[in-house]
C-alpha cells in the first residue's frame, strides 16, 4: 500500500487550476494556426489573430485566457493500492480548487442553482472517479466554461434512428449553437451507455489531444466525417463565417441497452483549457 499525503494533492490541483487557465495547450495553438491558414475570410483571420495574441498575452502576464475560468471538472484515476493520508481524496481536490482559484485571481463561477448565490470559492468542483489496479493517482482538470456547456445536448435516440440519426443530431446541435459557444469549437460526443454515462463519455473525450487517432477505426472514421459535415455549416470563428467551425471531433463509446441509443454532445470552446498530473 502506497501512502500519499493529501497536501501533495492539494498543491498539485491548485497549480493545475492556475496553469491551465493561463497557458493554452500546444495542440490547441497548433490547430488555431492551421485554422487561420485555411481561412480566406478576413473576419475569420482577424479572430484567429486576436486569439493568438490573447494566449501569448495570457502566458506573458499570467492573466486568465478567458474571464470564464470555468466550473472545475476533474477526471481522477486512482490505483486501489494507494491510500490518501490527512483527508479524503475528494476533500483534497476541493481544497486544491479553492486554493488555486483564490491564488490565481480566477473567477468564482459557481452558485446555488435556485438562489443564484455564489459559493465564493469556485467549489464544489465536479469530480469523476475511476478505481484501477496499481498505486498511482492521475488527475485531469478541465476549466469548463458556461457558454459552451449551455449549448451541449443529450438525446435518447431509438435503435431505428441509428447511426444516421446520430450524425444528424450532432451536426444539428452544432448548427443550433451557432456563434454562442465561441467557435471554433471542439465537439465531444458520447455514444451509448446509459442516460447518465453518455454525457460523461462526451466530456471525457474532450481530454484527448487534438489530431490524435481514435483507437477504434469505426469511430476514427466517424470523427472525420462529422468534422467535415460540421465545417460545411460555414459558421466559422465567432459565427462570422469561415471554414473552421470546429477544430476537432472526439468520440467515446460504450455498449448500451437493446432498447436505447443514448447520444450526448458536449461542446468545448476554442479556449480548451485542461491539464493532467500524475502523483
Amino acid at each position: 500500500m502506497r501512502v500519499l499525503d493529501a497536501q501533495t494533492i492539494i498543491d498539485a490541483v491548485a497549480a493545475m487550476c492556475i496553469r491551465a487557465n493561463q497557458i493554452l495547450p500546444q495542440d490547441v495553438r497548433q490547430f488555431l494556426a492551421q485554422g487561420r491558414a485555411r481561412e480566406d475570410n478576413p473576419a475569420a483571420q482577424e479572430i484567429f489573430g486576436q486569439l493568438t495574441k490573447n494566449y501569448e498575452l495570457a502566458e506573458k502576464t499570467g492573466l486568465p485566457l478567458c474571464q470564464d475560468t470555468g466550473l472545475a471538472v476533474f477526471f481522477v484515476t486512482m490505483g486501489q493500492d494507494l491510500c490518501v493520508q490527512g483527508m479524503g481524496l475528494t476533500e483534497a481536490i476541493q481544497a486544491g480548487t479553492r486554493q488555486g482559484y483564490a491564488q490565481g485571481y480566477l473567477r468564482n463561477s459557481v452558485c446555488d442553482p435556485l438562489t443564484r448565490v455564489n459559493t465564493n470559492d469556485n467549489t464544489p468542483a465536479i469530480i469523476h472517479l475511476d478505481l484501477v489496479p496499481g498505486d498511482q493517482l492521475k488527475i485531469a482538470f478541465m476549466a469548463k466554461g458556461g457558454g459552451s456547456e449551455n449549448m451541449s445536448t443529450m438525446v435518447m435516440l431509438t435503435p431505428a434512428q441509428g447511426l444516421e440519426g446520430l450524425k444528424e443530431f450532432v451536426v444539428r446541435t452544432v448548427a443550433q449553437a451557432g456563434p454562442n459557444p465561441c467557435p471554433p469549437i471542439i465537439v465531444g460526443v458520447g455514444i451509448g451507455g446509459s442516460f447518465d454515462l453518455a454525457p460523461i463519455l462526451a466530456k471525457k473525450a474532450l481530454l484527448r489531444p487534438l489530431g490524435d487517432i481514435n483507437p477504434d477505426p469505426r469511430l476514427e472514421a466517424l470523427e472525420q466525417e462529422l468534422l467535415a459535415s460540421i465545417n460545411q455549416l460555414g459558421i466559422g470563428p465567432m459565427g462570422l463565417g469561415g471554414k473552421t467551425t470546429a477544430l476537432d471531433v472526439k468520440i467515446a463509446m460504450h455498449p448500451c441497452h437493446i432498447a436505447s441509443l443514448p447520444v450526448a454532445v458536449n461542446i468545448q470552446c476554442h479556449s480548451a483549457r485542461h491539464e493532467e498530473v500524475q502523483l
Binding site: A58, G62, L63, P64, L65, C66, Q67, D68, T69, Y105, L106, R107, S109, G146, G147, N150, N180, P181
Partner: peptide, 18 residues
Amino acid sequence: GPTPAPPGRPIGSAGPTT
C-alpha cells in the same frame, strides 16, 4: 463577469459572455 484584478491592474480578464 471579469476575473479579480491582480495587483497593479485595474481589472482581470474581461471578455464577453453569451
